[in-house]
Design a protein around this nucleic acid. Structure first.
Length: 485
RNA sequence: CGCGGAGUAGAGCAGCCCGGUAGCUCGUCAGGCUCAUAACCUGGAGGUCGCGAGUUCGAAUCUCGCCUCCGCACCCA
């Protein structure tokens, strides 16, 4: 889920890291070529259209990517060809390939994997028709990498995450690796193999190399100095390619390996897999229009244990919106800020001596950042958010315990101290929630009069200055009310 | 067939690796408060932890068998 990657990237940026967040799309392959022919348009025109849709989607989701690479770009093609050349010559050899091929799956299947369809038609496990294909092909000596890959997994338990994915990959590799066909002659929509014009690269050599071609590979200077990547976040269905083929290719080309491959789960609609044929696909654009972008982002990161599959439903979404956002964070900010606005001169209050309870709440808020670093480092976004919300609950209890509306009459100085503590805490919370909800947290920080250049995590070290004028507060997270049926 | 995951209060989940009063969120019921977006706080009710057997002084937690659902296959990214 790109949103998760985005939140991670934003978190690291706010924490002072120089982040490069790149995404892109694979635009080659026989499937594209065929689809384009069916539509009677050029393949390039087809992928241009799709790419535009993707960019629009990402922009709509507020994705803060630094680069969006398409495999049809010249920079990718030349880079991919160079990558091919630099893979060890011992690893690439020419041979004949024959087997049952499914165009739809872009994969060959073993005889034993096929099922018998109607009229004797052989079908791939996916139900897609297969055809007997015999062609000249370049092969990659993947079999030679089995031990080195297992060693890699062994020495770096965190290389494939989550663990369940790792186990799958390890047992797959242990069961034996076969050499990989890495070129095709049956279609031409792809990157030509260097010095073998009849061949185009098989989709994965081509597509996987995007991670480095986007960095300017083979140019060793510039962005390429950032390689290796700290993490590849991918759909769990393509974990195999990223955790087996890609490291093997990189080893062959004598490049460093990414430090982690994270195969994330899928989002289900009410427990059902989204599928066009079932007609239960939820368009992100519709969700944003109905609920707003930040609530969606929050929901997806909070509700789903990242890495596992998750569910989305109107009911669950509304519940999160109303209880966590409107009643939780939103209400806390609103009750405190509007009280200050009405009863404490609309400025950051000046505190007196702090009581243990004050210290405790401030400490709880300050302790969040290191705790969040740990969770983000493990891509445990749901736990990170849970921690933040524990402090919100503690803050609500604190408000009730010290009841500023009573102190207003009995002890104004103490009231100011309480309100001061709360503004500091809310500021912490708003700052820490930025990676997940950039727009809403910005509004919150506006209301706390935090300068735009003081909103990163380093800025948290500087408390809000007492006496700073605060604007009139406005609700940031509206309750979701069912439209009248 | 095989490999993998899951079955715990009305709902969604944690706990299970490292056995010992079954926990969280939401909902629900009662009480409190009134600063706030009918919100917030406190307390209660609600579970034979899929089924059966075994190990053990003791099992949601370990072992074996069985049942059910799901993924590894479409789609989507």
């Amino acid at each position: 889920e790109v949103i998760a990657v985005d939140a991670l990237a934003r978190f690291m940026r706010l924490d002072g890291y120089d982040v490069r967040f790149q995404t892109g799309m694979d635009e080659h392959g026989q499937k594209i070529e065929q689809t384009a022919r069916k539509l009677d348009i050029a393949p390039q025109a087809l992928v241009d259209k799709v790419a535009a849709q993707f960019r629009a989607l990402y922009d709509g989701l507020g994705i803060s990517y630094d680069d969006f690479i398409r495999t049809t770009e010249p920079r990718h093609k030349t880079g991919a060809q160079e990558f091919w050349r630099r893979m060890s010559k011992d690893d690439i050899y020419l041979d004949k390939y024959s087997g049952w091929y499914s165009v739809r799956d872009e994969a060959y299947f073993d005889e034993s994997e096929l099922t018998q369809g109607e009229g004797g038609q052989k079908l791939a496990p996916s139900g897609a028709p297969v055809e007997w294909v015999e062609e000249e092909s370049y092969f990659f000596r993947l079999s030679a990498y089995q031990d080195r890959l297992l060693e890699l997994y062994e020495d770096n338990p965190g290389f494939i995450q989550p663990d369940s994915r790792r186990n799958e990959i390890v047992s797959f590799v242990k069961s034996g690796l076969r050499d990989l066909s890495i070129s095709r002659t049956t279609f031409s929509w792809g990157v030509p193999v260097p010095d073998a014009p009849k061949h185009v690269m098989y989709v994965w050599v081509d597509a996987l190399s995007n991670y480095i071609t986007a960095l300017g590979y083979p140019e060793p200077q510039g962005e390429m100095t950032r390689w290796p990547a700290d993490i590849h976040i991918i759909g769990k269905d393509i974990t195999r390619f990223h955790a087996i083929y890609w490291p093997a290719f990189l080893m062959s080309a004598k490049l460093a390996l990414p430090k982690r491959v994270f195969g994330h789960g899928f989002i289900y609609n009410r427990g059902e897999k989204m599928s066009k044929s079932v007609g239960n696909v939820i368009a992100p654009q519709d969700l944003i229009a109905t609920y707003g972008l930040d609530p969606i982002r929050y929901f997806l990161l909070r509700e789903v244990a990242f890495g596992q599959d998750g569910n989305i439903s109107h009911e669950a979404l509304v519940q999160r919106m109303n209880s966590d956002l409107a009643n939780g964070l939103g209400n806390l900010a609103q009750r405190v800020l509007s009280f200050i606005n009405k009863n404490a001169g609309a400025v950051v209050p000046t505190p007196g001596a702090l009581l243990p309870a004050d210290e405790a709440l401030l400490k709880a808020a300050q302790d969040l950042l290191p705790a969040l670093r740990k969770e983000y480092a493990e891509q445990a976004f749901h736990r990170a958010l849970d921690l933040i919300w524990q402090v919100i609950a503690a803050s609500d209890r604190y408000v009730d315990e010290f009841a500023p509306w009573t102190l207003r009459k009995t002890d104004p100085a103490r009231m100011n101290t309480v309100l001061y503590v709360l503004t500091q805490v809310i500021r912490q919370l708003a700052t820490l929630v930025q990676p997940v909800m950039p727009a809403s947290s910005a509004k919150l920080l506006d209301q706390l009069a935090v300068p735009k250049d003081k909103r990163d995590f380093a800025g948290l070290a500087t408390p809000l200055a007492p006496g700073t004028a605060l604007p009139a507060p406005q609700g940031v997270f509206p309750r979701f009310v069912e439209p009248a049926a």
